[in-house]
Design a protein around this nucleic acid. Structure first.
Lengths: 199, 199
DNA sequence: CCAATTACGAAACTTGAGTTGCGCAATTGG
DNA sequence: CCAATTGCGCAACTCAAGTTTCGTAATTGG
């Protein structure tokens, strides 16, 4: 039971996303022109707008593909698992950061994504939805470590994950500092071991 | 020794920023129209563009005023001081968040600021500069607490501050969760005490 | 006073996002 | 086969950001 009228040309989606991705990486978000994408893809603008109602939606569709699917590993050692996880998030952020067009310590496309989520209700919902899924996985990982006695019983798992993921986003978007595996290790150590003098 | 030619009308800056702020709060960033600001302020568009080269620059000038000057207090108790500090940052974020025009868990103007910093080299530099100043103050506060023995000697102060500030920004921009004093207390507790089981 | 310099206002202009209307193509259900 | 439905291309359109040109106003330095 296919839908009623003329079916959409599925090749269009693929071709447009590829061309849009090339433009974003080459010239940045501002250099992405709907008219140019349509022309290069050999389709009318109306065909684009039927699929992505705004330029923001198209850009989000392109950049969202850059995020890894966050396959999580549970080795039984929470420190190793968290470092791996942070490293994967960092890799996704670095890919998006590269899609800025500019050089230097710029947030690249990450900032545009956040702005797009703030501008459009539906993009915001989608973004938060993806976060919730990732958060659920991470909280389960932390909870298992807590149950088996690696982590303290009165742990605030939400605050812990906010600290870890937040530090990565903060560096990419605000301070422009690098996020790599070495930083992920520092971060996890700091969060796990705490900052108080030995007690 | 005044500059050479006709001096700028200083009343213009004040009036324009007031009108722009009203528009941003009323209709959000997208609802801020340069033409309308110029008309309401009774000046030509060229006069606006002489002061703020893009709409982003004008918006940043407006929103940057919302950040508190972060007067930091040093009571000698690092937990109290950090909670106070996080609460002040959170207050600034909440003010910016309110300047979004939309309802719900939106990042509001915060996302637009990050995007503006990614789009314009000079805005990015200014943003990072403000961060560096704030960071310097916070790191000094942490360092004093470390020296007097409140905090562990091998502390990673940079990671600690990234965790704290990052968690706030992360909630505002990504998850849409609230940031208030209660959360600041949870956050500081979690970061200070760590997550490992008693060791 | 005069020349150089900078600010201002007004209007026309360019560019790109997003919309609209129309004719035609492809598909389903009867 | 026929009507309803949906996709597509084309072209003209609206709207707002940002630019350009030009005539005029205010200021400094000589």
């Amino acid at each position: 039971m296919a839908p009623r009228g003329r079916p959409r040309d599925t090749q269009v989606d693929e071709r447009v996303l590829r061309i849009a991705a090339a433009l974003i990486f080459e010239r940045g978000y501002a250099g992405l022109s709907i008219d140019e994408v349509a022309e290069r893809a050999g389709v009318a603008k109306t065909t684009l707008y039927r699929r992505w109602p705004t330029k923001d939606h198209l850009a989000v569709a392109v950049v969202a593909r850059l995020q890894a699917d966050d396959e999580i590993t549970d080795t039984g050692d929470i420190r190793t698992d968290l470092v791996d996880y942070m490293d994967k998030i960092a890799a996704g952020l670095n890919r998006m950061r590269a899609a800025g067009g500019r050089e230097g310590p710029s947030a690249g496309a990450v900032g545009e994504l956040v702005a797009a989520a703030a501008r459009h209700e539906d993009i915001g919902r989608m973004t938060r939805q993806q976060y919730v899924e990732r958060n659920t996985i991470a909280l389960a990982l932390i909870e298992r470590a807590r149950v088996r006695g690696e982590l303290r019983a009165d742990l605030d798992a939400e605050a812990l994950f906010d600290q870890l993921a937040g530090a990565l986003y903060y560096r990419v978007m605000i301070t422009g500092a690098p996020v790599d595996r070495a930083y992920a290790e520092r971060l996890v150590s700091s969060a796990l071991e705490g900052s108080l003098a030995c007690h």
